[in-house]
């Protein structure tokens, strides 16, 4: 179970945010299926060797975002709803984060907005070839 999540303590991004993103990504990709149980706070903290309060906070936020459900005594589970809204929101969050990083990186490299958009278009063409649906 632990192999699904990795976090980088040395990153400038707070660990709990990294973890939230990891879980959402797993849900979006289907690595964590609906109704599947997440590791306990203690187990995950030990596996990742991070503070248990960090894990607890991530789980709380995930519950607040509607991605997981926590019942005392039983543990934390990915929500069963599987409704399009939940998973799409999860996916959107992940994509937003990834693309946001990419744009920021492009800007740091000194690209102008127009040039960045051009290159982005090139990549869209590359990964969504004309023939493919959606």
């Amino acid at each position: 179970m632990a192999a699904i999540f990795t976090v980088d303590p040395r990153s400038g991004v707070p660990l709990y945010l990294q973890l939230i993103e990891q879980v959402k990504r797993a849900v979006a990709l289907g690595t964590l299926g609906p109704g599947e149980q997440l590791p306990t706070v203690k187990a995950l903290a030990l596996d990742l060797t991070i503070n248990p309060n960090t894990v607890a906070r991530a789980y709380r936020d995930l519950e607040h975002d509607g991605v997981i459900d926590t019942s005392p005594g039983r543990g934390s589970f990915v929500r069963m709803d599987g409704s399009v809204g939940e998973s799409r929101r999860a996916v959107d969050d992940v994509a937003r984060s990834v693309l946001g990083d990419a744009v920021r990186e492009a800007k740091t490299l000194g690209l102008a907005r127009k040039r960045a958009a051009e290159i982005f278009g090139e990549q869209l063409d590359r990964w969504f070839p004309a023939g493919e649906k959606e």
Binding site: V41, K42, A45, L46, T49, N51, P52, N53
Partner: peptide, 14 residues
């Protein structure tokens, strides 16, 4: 060092 850290984390989890 990792073992020591694990012990601390386990204690904190408790």
């Amino acid at each position: 060092q990792r073992v020591v850290l694990d012990l601390l984390i386990e204690a904190a989890a408790g």
